[in-house]
Write a protein that binds this DNA or RNA. Structure first.
Lengths: 194, 194
DNA sequence: CACCGAAGGTAGACACCGTCTACGACGACT
DNA sequence: AGTCGTCGTAGACGGTGTCTACCTTCGGTG
C-alpha cells in the first residue's frame, strides 16, 4: 500500500500473497517466503516475530482484496438490494473458488492471530456491507437484520467451504454451485423477483 | 470397534482420536501418536503409509461418531420432519462446538484423502439422513430436495465454521448460535410451526 | 573527522516433523 | 530344523519455526 516499495516488510507480504495464491496455504512457509524474497531465513523475524504474524498480514491482504472486489462489483450494480446481494454473493463465491488458497488461509483461525494486524478490522467492513444490504432487502416477518445477515453469510461461507471440500456436488448431484447459491438467496430473502 | 483391541492399527487410530479431541488437529503428528501408543516413530508406517492415511482414518471415526450421535438423537425424536431436522441441526452444531479439533480435521481436505479408507462413504450416509428429512419437510414451491438439502447443510456448516472462527458473534452481536440456527431453519423450511 | 551505536540482515544451532531404508526379532509352516 | 513373512526398531535426510550470536552499514554526535 503506502509502505515503501523496497521495504523488506512489504516485499515479504507481497511474496507471501503471490505464493499463497499460486501454490496454496501449505506452501507459505517462512523460509520459502524468505527464499523468494532473496533474503536469509532469519530476516523476516525482524518484521514478523512469528509465522502467525506474517500469515496474518497476508490474510489481511486477502480480506482487503475481497472487500475491494465486492465494492467494485457493487459500484456497477443495480440499486435494487436483492440484485446487489446476489452480486455480492457471487463475488464471494467466485473469490473463494478462484483464490482457494487465500480463502482457506483467511479463515484458518489456527494459523492467524485475529487480534494482531487489525485482521478483524479488515474483515468487518465486508460484513457491514452485507448487513446493510440485508437490512434493505429484509421483509417485516424476517429475523432481525443482524441475525438474517449472519445466517446468510454463514450460508454463503458454507457453500464455499463444502464446495471446496468436494462432497457437495457428489451429494447433491449439482454440477455447479449456482443452484445452491440461488436456493440460499431465495431462502433467506424470499423468492427472486420476476 | 470390531478390530482387534490389541492390534496396533486400531490402537493408533484410537490414540489419534483421543489426541485430536483433547489437543486439536495440529497436535496429531505421526510421531506423537506413535509415542503415546508406545511404539517407535516408524511403526505406524506399516499400517498407514502416510500421515494423510492415518489422519483420514481418524477423521473417519469422527464421521462415524457424528453419524451415530445424529441417529441416536433422531431415535428419540418426534416424527415430525421439521422437529427432526431441528434436532439434527442442533446435534451437528453441538458436535462442531464440543469436538472442535475433530470437526476441523474432518473437513480439512488438504490433510485427508477422501478416496482412501472410504472416508466419503462414511460421510455420505449422514447427508442422506438430512436429505431424506428435507424431502419430507419440503414445500411444493421450494427448490428440488437435493438442492434444498445441500443449501441447508451448507448453512449449518457455515454457522459452525464462522462460529469457530470467532467473528460471527462479534459481527451479529449474538451471544449464542441458536438465533442463527433458527433463522437458517426458518429460511430454508419456512417459519416454525406454532 | 573519528567514533560509536543502533538498525537490519546473515548464519548456525536446536528440536520437531514426515518419509525412507536397512536391520533385527519372532513365529508359523514345510 | 530351517526358512520365509510379518512386525516393529532405529538411524538418516531434508524440511520446518524459532532462538541467538554475529556482522555490516550508515547516520548523528563528540
Amino acid at each position: 500500500m503506502d509502505a515503501d516499495e523496497t521495504g523488506l516488510r512489504a516485499r515479504l507480504v507481497a511474496v507471501g500473497v503471490d505464493l499463497v495464491l499460486r501454490e496454496g496455504q501449505s506452501a507459505v512457509s517462512l523460509r520459502e517466503i524468505a527464499r523468494r524474497a532473496g533474503v536469509s531465513h532469519g530476516a523476516p523475524r525482524r518484521y514478523f516475530p512469528t509465522h502467525v504474524d506474517l500469515l496474518s498480514a497476508i490474510a489481511r491482504e486477502g480480506f482487503a482484496d475481497l472487500t475491494a472486489r465486492v465494492e467494485r462489483t457493487l459500484r456497477d450494480a443495480d440499486p435494487d438490494p436483492r440484485t446487489r446481494l446476489t452480486a455480492l454473493a457471487r463475488t464471494y463465491l467466485d473469490f473463494a473458488a478462484a483464490h482457494r488458497g487465500m480463502f482457506e488461509l483467511m479463515f484458518r483461525h489456527d494459523l492467524l492471530d485475529s487480534g494482531r494486524l487489525r485482521l478483524r478490522e479488515t474483515s468487518l467492513p465486508l460484513f457491514a456491507v452485507l448487513a446493510d444490504l440485508v437490512a434493505q432487502a429484509r421483509r417485516p416477518t424476517d429475523a432481525p437484520a443482524a441475525v438474517l445477515a449472519g445466517a446468510l453469510w454463514a450460508n454463503l461461507h458454507g457453500i464455499a467451504q463444502l464446495w471446496a471440500w468436494g462432497s457437495l456436488p457428489l451429494a447433491t448431484g449439482a454440477t455447479d454451485d449456482d443452484a445452491l447459491l440461488r436456493a440460499a438467496l431465495d431462502a433467506h430473502l424470499g423468492p427472486a423477483p420476476a
